[in-house]
Amino acid sequence: MFKKFDYYAPKTLAELFELTNENNEAQILAGGTDLLLKLREKTTPHKMLIDIKKLDNFRGIETKDGYLRMGALTTIREIQASKIIREKYTALYDAAKSFGCLEIRNRATIGGNIVHASPGAEFGTPLFVLAAEAEVIGPDGTRVIPIHEFWQDVYQVDLKDNEVLAAIRLPYYEKMVSRYHRLSRVKGMDLAIVGVSVLALDPANIEKREVKIAMGAVARIPFRNKEVETMLSGVKITNELLVSVKEKLSDSIAPRSSSLRAKPAYKKAMVGNLTEQALLELGLLEEGE
C-alpha cells in the first residue's frame, strides 16, 4: 500500500514547469520502480507526483550529429532490444540484460536509474566509461553535463529544483568496444553486488588503444580508476600486467563494510576478476602468456 499523494500528468513542457515551479516538493515519476517503493515507507513526505510519461520529449533512441541520444524515458527493455546499442554500446546492452527481470525492465527507465543514483545502479559504470552526457531541461533551457559531474553522490545528481533529465547523450566513436559484467548472490533476479565496465577505443591498434574501466557498488558513485586505465592503454595486456592491474584495482577501492550484499574483501577480489572477464571477451588479453 502506498502512502497518500497527488498525481499529475502534464502533457506539455510548459505544464510540467508550471507544476514544478509551484511545487518544490514534487517528485518526477518515470517507471516508478524506485520511487513507488519509497512511497510505501513512512518516512517519505512526498505529496505530489508528476508523471512525465505523457511527454514525448523524453522518448526514443536516435542518432544526432555525432552522438546517440537516448531519451530519459527509454525503458531498460528498449535498451536491451536496440540493435545499435547492442552492437555499438555493448556495455549498456549487458547492463540491460542483467537488470531486474522482464516485467521490471518493461517499466524501469534509464533516466530513473541515473537520477536515483544508487551506488550499484546498473547503468552507472557503462555510462561512465562511455563518457556519456546528461541533457537536462528546465524552464531556462537545456544544460549538457558530463555524467561524472552530473552524478554527484549517493542518491544525488545535479538537478535544480525544477529541472528534469531529458536524455542521455553517448558520444560516437568509429572503433569502440565495451562490456559490462556484474556479480550477484543468486542466478536469478538480484541487484549487483559489484559490477565492472571496460571500454576500449581503437582496440585493434595496440599503440593507440585507450582502455577505460569503471567499477560499481564499490564506492558512493561509480568509480573510474585512471591509473589502471593508463597502465592498460597503448600496451599489450599480458597476464603479468593483469596481475598488477587486479592488485591496483583492488587496492583502489574501499567498499563500505555495512553492505548486506557483500563484504569489502570479496568486492576487492571480484573487481579484478570481472575486469579480466571483460578484457578477455573484448579480445584485449594476449594469449598464451
Binding site: 543468486v186 542466478k187 536469478g188
Partner: peptide
Amino acid sequence: TDFKIPTPED
C-alpha cells in the same frame, strides 16, 4: 531483495 530465496534460474 536482500533475503534471497531460490529463483527459477538457480
